[in-house]
Design a binder for these strands. Structure first.
Lengths: 110, 110
DNA sequence: TCTGGATATATCCAATATAGATATATCATC
DNA sequence: GATGATATATCTATATTGGATATATCCAGA
C-alpha cells in the first residue's frame, strides 16, 4: 500500500463520496456521479480507483459477478473524504453568506 | 473577452467564492483562502485571475492603491460560481446522508 | 441469428491545471 | 538601510484530466 496522500484530487473525492452509501464498481460510480452532473472520463475514473487502492483509501470486496470489481471505503478513505467535504462545506458557506446562492435561478439580478 | 467556459477549475471556483463578499485583489484573495485551508500558489492564482478576466467572470474595478489591482464578480461569474456551489453541495449532501460527516473527528469508528 | 447498444474494465496520449521557484518592486518599521 | 510583509507576474516541472481507443460480455429486438 502506498503512502496516504494528505489531499485528494477532485476526482478521488467524488469517487469516495459515490462509495459512501455502500460498495460499488467503476461503471456504477460513473453512472451515479453522472446523475449529479459530475462527469468523469474512463481514464480518470480507473486511474483514480487504482491510486485510491494503492493509498488504502478504498478496498476491493467480494462479488459474484465476474465482470465487476466491487470497491468499498476504508476507514482512512472515509476520514479523508469527510475532511475534504467539510473543507468544501466551509467554502460553500462563505458563498451562501455572501448571497451568492440566493438567486433561485437565472435572470435574478444580483 | 474569451468564451465562457461551462465548467470552472477548482482554483477558479475558489477565487470566485473569495470575491463573493466584495472586491479584492490577488494577494488578498490568497490570504483569505489561506484562512480556509485553501492553498493557491502565486502561479495558479494569477494565471487563474487572467483566465477569469478573459472569460468575463470577473472584472477589474477602481482603486486608489497603485500597487493593487482590484477585482469583482461579474453577473456571469456569480452565476457560474453559484451553479458550481450547488453542484458541490449536492455531493456533500450525499456524503452527509451516507453518514460520512457524523464522526465528530478522528478515532470514531464508522 | 446477428446486430446494436448497454455494461464493464483498462490503457494511452494530448491538453489542461497546479505547485513552487524565481523575479521585481513598494511599503513599513526597527 | 536591512528586514519582512505586501503585491504582481512569469517560468518550468509535475499532476491531473478528458477523450480516444481497445477489449469483452450481456441483452433486447429486428
Amino acid at each position: 500500500m502506498g503512502p496516504q496522500p494528505k489531499t485528494l484530487t477532485p476526482a478521488m473525492f467524488q469517487i469516495l463520496v459515490a462509495l459512501a452509501p455502500g460498495p460499488s464498481h467503476g461503471y456504477g460510480i460513473m453512472l451515479e456521479l453522472g446523475e449529479m452532473d459530475v462527469k468523469l472520463g474512463p481514464g480518470t475514473l480507473y486511474r483514480s480507483i487504482k491510486q485510491l487502492l494503492e493509498a488504502g483509501l478504498i478496498a476491493e470486496t467480494e462479488t459474484d459477478d465476474e465482470r465487476r470489481r466491487l470497491y468499498e471505503l476504508t476507514d482512512a478513505g472515509a476520514e479523508l473524504a469527510a475532511a475534504e467535504a467539510q473543507r468544501l462545506n466551509a467554502l460553500i458557506g462563505k458563498a451562501r453568506r455572501a448571497g451568492l446562492l440566493t438567486h433561485p435561478s437565472l435572470g435574478t439580478s444580483r
